[in-house]
């Protein structure tokens, strides 16, 4: 038996692989279930052909729509056809534009992705430093300020916060455009709103994690050794406290992408969220189904990546 770095690394890789396979299997199963749910949402309220035909439709109109969109096939057959299409990126055609759903989405998704990434960056830049300082100096002025920000953030409805920011910074100050998505300035207010929404959770977790880590024996040892306090803080403490924060940030990013629908609607930001809102109002079911599935898949993928990253950083998770 060989002990040492090489043996340790092989063991680590095997454990990681096993963990990876298990998590991948779970993610695939979740994705499949979500696809079933997003498909059946359409049939939840009864016959989609009736809903599409509108209130003035005759029995013949409904029958025509039923055959045109393939609703006359058994539902399991429709699901399998939809799912196999989805695997190749084919979600059918939009009822409203009569163009492929995937084209509509791929036009709009980059905007939402940019908004989501900008939002989570804003949240991390605000929440992590505040959380760390709040943990180093509990009950200080900054700790109270951090608490205030997080309490206010949790009670502030995002759509109302957006309107208030528009009144102050777009109308009264004239610093940023009111709405639209032409330039990077259009992203400033939506980023702040979306990022602020994720701030309280990340800040609380950073603070709690740092408080716990700072009490740990290895920090006391590092300090007792006479290490530079800044080095102890950033290299030893923050690195360990960051593990759960990375996971939460990934989850929050998933929530933010799914929740961008409200913010994009208010700021008329031309992303996938606005597309979802418009499609819901147009009864454009294929687009809505595809977007629900897509946002869910992004979330599944993000949590998968976060879990893998955590397992790589924290050996205790791999074994479980």
């Amino acid at each position: 038996m060989q002990y040492g770095p090489a043996a340790f690394n092989t063991a680590k890789v095997i454990l990681m692989l096993r963990f990876l396979l298990k998590r991948l299997g779970l993610a695939a199963l979740v994705a499949l279930t979500v696809s079933l749910i997003s498909f059946s949402l359409l049939f939840l309220a009864g016959d989609p052909a009736v809903a599409l035909a509108g209130e003035a439709a005759t029995e013949e109109d409904i029958e025509a729509i039923r055959t045109q969109y393939g609703f006359d096939r058994p539902i399991p057959v429709q699901y399998v056809a939809w799912l196999t299409g989805a695997f190749t990126g084919d979600f059918g055609n939009s009822y409203y534009f009569n163009t492929p759903v995937i084209d509509l989405i791929s036009d709009r998704l980059p905007t939402t992705m940019q908004l989501g990434l900008a939002g989570i960056t804003f949240a991390l830049l605000l929440a992590v430093p505040l959380g760390v300082i709040a943990a180093i100096r509990p009950n200080s002025l900054i700790d109270r300020f951090a608490l205030f920000i997080s309490v206010v953030g949790q009670a502030m409805p995002t759509f109302w916060f957006s309107l208030i920011l528009i009144v102050i910074f777009a109308v009264n100050m004239g610093w940023v455009p009111v709405s639209g998505s032409g330039t990077w300035q259009h992203f400033i207010l939506p980023t702040i709103v979306l990022g602020y929404f994720a701030t309280p959770g990340i800040m609380r977790l950073t603070r709690a994690g740092m408080l716990e880590v700072l009490r740990a024996d290895y920090i006391r040892t590092a300090r007792a050794k006479g290490l530079n306090p800044a080095k102890v803080l950033f290299k030893h403490a923050l690195r360990n406290a960051a593990i759960p924060v990375v996971g939460l940030a990934a989850v929050q990013l998933g929530f933010m992408l799914g929740g961008s629908i409200v913010i994009e609607s208010i700021f008329a930001l031309n992303g996938a969220g606005l597309l979802a809102f418009e499609s819901i109002n147009r009864n454009d079911f294929p687009v809505v189904q595809a977007l629900i599935l897509l946002f869910s898949l992004i979330y599944v993928l993000l949590t998968l990546l976060a879990d893998l990253l955590n397992a790589w950083l924290d050996p205790r998770i791999r074994v479980a």
Binding site: L26, L29, V30, T33, V34, I37, S38, L41, L42, L44, A45, A51, G254, F255, L257, G258, G259, I261, V262, A276, F277, I280, N281, N283, V288, L291, I292, F295, S296, Y299, V300, T303
Partner: peptide, 23 residues
């Protein structure tokens, strides 16, 4: 745990809007 994971991966606002629109 599986049911919870599935539920968490669905975007709440989007699903709520879609279902309310249908009903």
């Amino acid at each position: 745990m599986f049911i919870i994971t599935v539920r968490l991966s669905m975007p709440v606002v989007l699903v709520a809007l879609a279902v309310v629109a249908l009903f």
